[in-house]
């Protein structure tokens, strides 16, 4: 895996939000954003800190009602501990709704509880990844995640 190489711009749809990051910890968010920016994805991601707001964005409702929901992101990174509606509930609603059930959702959580893991899979999560404690490790995990879901994983044409 070649780290530190920016994602070739032509591999992405122009002006398209590719990554939705739902994470309430500013420290973790900052770290994720740093990685995302380094990979040349400025403008391709959206950071949301609250479960309810995440649902609003994905369903283009309330504050996001004008956002054209033709923007199907390539992946949603979802923390479990969120203010407002919690991560598992967000996951449940996203995977139940026709409009969003095919969105790749990756839980990125510090929880290693088998309960959480099983529930996430029961709800249809695509992948469950635990957040390492060290920031360098978290950095490389995020990078690997972004590369996998943006470059390797294929989605149907929008």
């Amino acid at each position: 895996m070649i780290i530190n190489e920016p994602i070739p711009v032509e591999k992405l749809d122009p002006d398209q939000i590719e990554i939705v990051i739902v994470e309430d910890s500013s420290k973790v968010a900052e770290l994720i954003l740093r990685v995302v920016r380094r990979l040349n994805l400025a403008g391709r991601y959206i950071l949301i800190k609250d479960g309810g707001e995440a649902l609003d964005y994905l369903f283009a409702q309330t504050n996001y009602v004008n956002a054209a929901v033709r923007r199907t992101p390539r992946v949603v990174f979802l923390d479990l501990k969120l203010p407002g509606i919690d991560g598992l509930e967000v996951l449940r609603r996203v995977k139940l709704d026709e409009r969003t059930k095919n969105l790749p959702v990756v839980v990125l959580s510090s929880s290693i509880q088998e309960n959480d893991i099983k529930t996430a899979y029961d709800l249809g999560v695509n992948s469950y990844v635990t957040k390492p404690n060290q920031s360098e490790e978290l950095s490389s995990v995020v990078e690997e995640l972004v590369r996998y879901w943006l470059l390797l994983n294929k989605m149907p044409a929008r």
């Binding site: 002006d15 004008n66 054209a68 923007r71």
Partner: peptide, 10 residues
Amino acid sequence: PDCDETGRIA
């Protein structure tokens, strides 16, 4: 036309 997420035409 190409709209961004706020509905603005780009």
